[in-house]
Simulated assay, not measured.
Amino acid sequence: MPDGREVDQAELLGVAKDEERARSLLRALRTLSTGPDPKLREMAGGVLRGDLTAEQAFTDPEYTAALFSGADKIRRAGELRTEAEAREAGERFGAWQEARDTEDEGENQSPDQEPRPTPQPPSGPWRQSGTGGVGGVGGPGGLGASRSPGPFGHR
């Protein structure tokens, strides 16, 4: 596959399990391939070129360490922001997500195809409401959500 083309989402189905997750994984790989972390750029570029499979990338100790390090930085930054910053970030994320979904529908819809239903806000244990929640975005401590310090204080 290293012939200059990019893998498509069908090639990611083995690790992603369904088309929506494969599409999301492909977007994430494209983002990582131009991001600031050299190890993640290397990993994402390798998967996109077909030089290594997603399974190989996600089980390589160096790449998984880089992924977890980046996730930890994001978590810490989220814990340090104010409620106003959290609300603003949630609103920006919602607008970005709507724009992305609209763009995806345009790319993936043939002229004779029925429009896809508009995604509904999540329900269940991950829905954030009341104190600091932003329309159910994220899980416990997710985007815009207040996080209680728990018995041991903030991490």
Rank of each mutant, 00 (worst) to 15 (best):
W126Q: 14
E103C: 05
E114A: 12
T118L: 12
T131N: 15
P125W: 11
G136S: 12
P111D: 10
A95Y: 02
G141C: 15
A99I: 00
T118K: 14
A95S: 11
E98D: 09
A99W: 02
N108P: 00
G90E: 03
Q120F: 05
G90Y: 02
E105P: 01
G138H: 08
R92P: 02
R100F: 06
G135T: 01
Q97C: 04
P122Y: 06
R100S: 07
R100I: 00
D104S: 10
L143Q: 07
W96Y: 09
D101R: 11
P122T: 08
P115V: 00
W126R: 15
Q109K: 12
Q113W: 04
D104R: 15
P140D: 07
G124A: 13
G142F: 04
A99F: 02
P140T: 06
E98G: 02
V137G: 04
S110C: 04
G94H: 07
G138F: 05
N108K: 06
Q113L: 01
S123L: 13
E91R: 15
T102P: 04
T131L: 13
G138T: 00
D104K: 09
G130A: 15
P122G: 15
G90W: 03
S123I: 09
G94F: 03
E105T: 01
R116D: 04
F93I: 00
E91A: 12
P117K: 05
P125F: 11
V134C: 10
V137H: 11
S110W: 06
D101N: 07
P125R: 14
G136P: 11
Q97D: 06
R100G: 01
W126C: 15
Q128L: 10
G133K: 07
G106S: 09
L143C: 08
T102C: 05
P121A: 14
F93N: 03
W96V: 00
E114Q: 10
P125L: 11
G139Q: 14
G94E: 11
P140N: 13
T102F: 03
L143K: 08
Q113Y: 03
P122I: 06
